[in-house]
Amino acid sequence: MAASRSSVVPAAAGRTLRRDAWWLESVPVWILMGGFSLYATFRAFEGKFYESAPYLSPFYSPLIDPQHHWLPLWFSPAMLILAFPLGFRATCYYYRKALYRAFLLDPPACAVGENPQRKYRGEAKFPFILQNTHRYFLYGAIVFLCFLWYDALRAFWFPGPDQKLHFGIGLGSLVLLVNIVLLSCYLFSCHSLRHLIGGNLDCFSCTAFNLKRHGAWKKASFLNERHMIFAWASLISVGFADFYVRMVSSGMIKDLRIL
């Protein structure tokens, strides 16, 4: 059967009748994702300039064996830590869309052709079937989030000359605070969390407890609609937070003390 359509719009990668600049959609993903990956890799291997009291870079929190008592010297503590947030983001329902589109061209954009020869398995087979582990990364991310909240709050307590901690506000405190708020928004807008918190129920009104979960689910749903925004905002903020700490720690700039 010689399908007539194929004579008009042959199946081929990138073929489409779309008039708009569909390929532009992926450009921010390439730039942000690519830039962040390079920077994070560099920082993970760098293994220094991650702390400047009271600030601790989110890449290195919680701080594990910074003196390399048992970690080999070439192994920076960040490498242990980054795996979790990275896994959380890689399996995130939003990033999956962005990454499949931008990097695997699967599809390059809506109604834009793909390579018809490639065998497609989606998330039904290895490797992407592993995306189903997202909720476990979520559990991990919740633990990390606690550490980061601790770090962010600690960033308001500056060591004084009397060896005691005094309340204060530096630009770094605010950077870390903004970062942790955005990270929290990203985490609480997670699709898996929305499911576990109430989405898995069929009847909200059946019990009083279910009604409570319905309330939580509605809030999670509100955040969830903005998951994409939080995903990017928190990616940028976490990178910037580390960058700020590095600048201060390496002495490139001096932290601005507000209070």
Partner: peptide
């Protein structure tokens, strides 16, 4: 229904 084949690209 092969929901695993969906890679949630949202088109």
């Amino acid at each position: 229904l092969g929901i695993g084949y969906c890679n949630i690209t949202k088109c």
